[in-house]
């Protein structure tokens, strides 16, 4: 399917990429992960790369269950380690389009070390991080993205730790592609993922997603949350990333979204292939 046509895929085309026999999925009503899963499938259809050449890798958590529902090669590995698995696979099979799909806890907290080093190396993988500000699978503990002051299962008197500003973190290490949307920005998420497939290097998309079950967002219903994403998000592609951190979740929160970074890049894997060519010719 060529991108120029911009025809939305039919339900049948999308269904053909789902493991329908596994439905219903595990996600709670009002969860945003399914929206991003569908956006990924739509982006895959638009990518022009056959499904057999796309691979999903995930860690552990609600978001990491996503590859289990998509009918392409998918690897649901151990907590925090989706990135190194993806890097190993991509390095030996460069023709595959490898995407990591996981949550904020998996990628930025337990897997934080792999995240920063994959960016530093500029590994040629796509990373989609669903940020719902909590560990949903285990019942709502605080993590690296939980806003200060939040009352969670493990911060019953209020969270007193600082919060990662993930787009700033990722961009500061030099990721060639960094974007952030909320689950309300469905079209933008699809466009972004299609673009990520084309970058030779590390691409990062943060999707802000509701978890009304386990976060302070639980004072709201799904509709009012979507309204919050609509009314309180601001598209600013050139935002100063120092100011995009999400340190609270209430009526005052500003969700700054957009494509923050998109610059030319040559990945570790491309550089390594050149190195191998040089060495095999007898160079030092």
């Amino acid at each position: 399917m060529s991108e120029a046509k911009l025809i939305r895929p039919s339900i049948d085309e999308i269904k053909a990429l789902l493991r329908v026999e596994r439905l219903p999925h595990i996600w709670c009503p009002s969860c945003g992960i399914g929206i991003v899963a569908k956006a990924y499938v739509e982006a895959l259809l638009r990518s022009g790369i056959p499904p057999e050449k796309h691979v999903l890798v995930s860690g552990i958590g609600c978001s990491s269950r996503m590859p289990g529902y998509i009918k392409i090669d998918g690897y649901h590995v151990i907590h925090g380690r989706a990135i190194p698995f993806a890097v190993g696979l991509k390095t030996v099979r460069p023709e595959l389009e490898v995407t990591v799909f996981a949550g904020d806890g998996d990628l930025s907290t337990i897997g934080g070390n792999h995240l920063i080093h994959a960016i530093r190396r500029n590994d040629d993988i796509n990373v989609i991080m669903i940020n719902n500000f909590t560990y949903g699978m285990t019942g709502g503990q605080y993590g690296g993205t939980t806003p200060e002051g939040s009352r969670t299962l493990t911060s019953p008197y209020g969270h007193i730790e600082g919060t990662f500003n993930v787009p700033l973190l990722v961009a500061s290490i030099g990721a060639p592609y960094v974007a952030r949307w909320t689950v309300l920005h469905y079209r933008q998420i699809v466009d972004t993922i299609v673009e990520m497939f084309k970058v030779d290097g590390f691409t990062f998309l943060e999707v802000i997603s509701p978890c009304i079950i386990y976060t302070d967002m639980n004072r709201r219903d799904a509709i009012s949350l979507m309204r919050m994403f609509k009314n309180q998000s601001e598209i600013d592609h050139t935002a100063d990333l120092r100011n995009v951190g999400i340190e609270r979740l209430d009526e005052e929160t500003r969700f700054i979204v957009g494509k923050f970074v998109h610059r030319p890049s040559e990945s570790y894997q491309t550089k390594y292939r050149k190195l191998v060519e040089r060495v095999m010719k007898g160079g030092e």
């Binding site: 590995v77 190194p84 698995f85 099979r93």
Partner: peptide, 18 residues
């Protein structure tokens, strides 16, 4: 890699590439 955890997981990924 950045540690031994990443190293062993990366070889599991690469082995799954055949």
């Amino acid at each position: 890699f950045e540690d031994e955890i990443a190293s062993v997981v990366a070889i599991i990924g690469a082995a799954n590439g055949g």
